[in-house]
Design a protein around this nucleic acid. Structure first.
Length: 483
RNA sequence: CGGGGCGUAGCGCAGUUGGCUAGCGUAUCGGCUUUGGGAGCCGAGGGUCGUCGGUUCGAGUCCGACCGCCCCGACCA
């Protein structure tokens, strides 16, 4: 256990980033460890953040023509085995239900690690004609993947996610869908979470078990490590052939559908924490923050009534304007304590209101990101705070972008790659001949993997060589250590 | 699952070569004074020392097994 800087405090990032992450999540009351091994309790504050993220995504799914549905938690063993690569990929982490009461089941049931198989079994029944296509469905659900080593939000045995599963008439349409949803994720991460990402294709060894192609959005955290923030898979006809999802096309020929699946998880919460937070705790992106503005009244006995009254008016005004605001009128703690607590919990803006402010007709607004104080006239309160929240979002995004820019380097030799990963972390561009041998060699020596083959910048430069083999590079790719 | 560390009040910790009634800080509760960056004083409550077993006149302390958590590896969103 790392030492705490002071009692009640959290470990500084520079001392131990992992411990900082754990301290922050526990103290901000986003989540804590469950009594159930490998699982966590998502506490109201953390869940409120997830709900806001979920709603923002759900709006985007609906806007792109998708509908929500729900499929069973249990997957009969025979379903799971229909797609060979798929079973093999998930087998080690699947828990099984074998008994009901004392009676053994005739067929054991997997607890879903993902729902491709159960959903495909349903789709096989639903699809007859090209007129039934496309099927554009999303599911919000929990899934279970038994992990050896867990970490709050980033890796727990059970987690929450969203999985989209679509069927299309043509390969082209399915490929378009795969890209469309990847773009939805990218835009969501930037617009709602202030997290810039690098879009690209996964290598053969990193792709989803059962997919033809896997694409991902890759983010970078404050410690320079990479994190996969979302994936979108082109499944081709792998599952439709295994599950007999066939339709009669316009030309009276029976064909297999083309499929996609795509998902993001509660891991994104961890990603937000490690992307924006600092030594004082969380910093939440305003668009999804459960509380965007906290109002702290400051008064003496004599002025208490007046100040509380004014604070209540401010809260009402901001609420009417659709802002998520909370008034911290607790009598048991003093203002300084409240400042620290709400900073720990990452609330983007704090309003301080005291007798002097009331006299002058303004409030004090303080930004979580740099503690900068501004006087805001009461008359322009709503407009100015809206503006400040927007600026705040922009600042977070800008900061994260600057980090990616400064933490992205280029290596032309294996030694250089290893050295950069060791001393700086971050993303490292390097030439790759397309072989799994190179990936394995790099991972062995540096613990870094190919995060993706980015859509932009992956054309090898003139005469570029693979960093390991020295063979001509097929792609210019991004290596990094990842969570 | 391998290597290391830790488990004592809600939280953070101390507890000497085994020895008296298990302590400190903080939080909690009551009272008074306070309130623009983690308030002060006075008083009170709170513990099967992770669990089970063993050694001993006597175990928080020694031994064994198990459980849990954290860190490092292998596997993964």
């Amino acid at each position: 256990m790392a030492k705490k800087e002071f009692e009640q405090g959290i470990t500084p990032q520079s001392e131990d980033f992992s411990q900082w992450y754990i301290d922050t999540i526990l103290k901000a009351e986003m989540a804590d460890y469950s009594c159930v091994r490998g699982c966590m309790n998502i506490r109201p504050y953390g869940y409120a953040l997830w709900e806001n993220m979920r709603d923002a995504l759900d709006r985007r799914f609906k806007a792109t023509g998708h509908q929500n549905a729900y499929f069973p938690l249990f997957v009969p063993e025979s379903f799971l085995q229909k797609e060979a690569e798929h079973v093999e990929g998930f087998a080690p982490e699947v828990p099984w239900v074998t008994h009901v009461g004392n009676e053994a089941l005739t067929e054991r049931l997997a607890i879903r690690p993902t729902s491709e198989t159960v959903i495909c079994a349903a789709y096989a029944q639903w699809v007859q004609s090209y007129r039934d296509l496309p099927i554009l469905i999303n599911q919000w659900a929990n899934v279970v993947r038994w992990e050896k080593r867990t970490r709050l939000f980033l890796r727990t045995s059970e987690f929450l996610w969203q999985e989209g599963h679509t069927c299309h008439r043509t390969e082209e349409e399915a490929r378009e869908e795969t890209m469309k949803m990847l773009e939805v994720y990218r835009e969501f991460c930037e617009t709602e979470l202030a997290m810039p990402v690098v879009c690209g294709r996964k290598t053969e060894s990193e792709k989803f078990a059962g997919a033809v192609d896997t694409y991902c959005i890759e983010g970078m955290l404050a410690d320079g490590n990479a994190i996969q923030n979302g994936t979108s898979h082109f499944l081709g006809q792998n599952f439709s052939k295994a599950f007999e999802i066939k339709f009669l096309d316009e030309d009276n020929v029976e064909k297999y559908v083309w499929q996609t699946s795509w998902g993001v998880t509660t891991r994104l919460v961890g990603s937000i924490v490690m992307s924006h937070g600092d030594d004082a705790g969380l910093i939440l992106p305003p668009r999804v923050a459960p509380i965007q503005i906290v109002v702290v009244p400051v008064y003496k006995d004599r002025t208490r009534g007046q100040v509380l009254e004014e604070a209540a008016k401010i809260v009402a005004e901001l609420q009417d304007a659709g802002l998520r605001v909370k008034c911290d009128d607790r009598e048991t703690v003093r203002p300084g304590f409240k400042y620290n607590e709400w900073e720990l919990r990452g609330v983007p803006l704090r309003i301080e209101i005291g007798p002097r402010d009331i006299e002058k007709g303004h409030v004090v607004a303080v930004r979580r990101v740099d503690r900068e104080k501004t006087f805001v006239q009461r008359a322009e309160l709503v407009a100015r705070l809206r503006e400040m929240l927007a600026t705040f979002h922009g600042d977070l995004l800008g900061r994260a972008r600057a980090r990616i820019a400064s933490q992205t380097r280029e290596a032309s030799t294996f030694d250089e790659l290893a050295d950069i990963v060791e001393t700086h972390r971050g993303f490292v561009w390097a030439g790759w001949d397309g072989t799994a041998e190179t990936e394995a060699a790099v991972k062995e020596r540096t613990k870094a993997t190919i995060r993706n083959i980015p859509f932009e910048g992956s054309e090898p430069t003139e005469g570029m060589k693979d960093v390991v083999s020295g063979q001509p590079a097929k792609h210019r790719v991004l290596f990094a250590r990842a969570y």
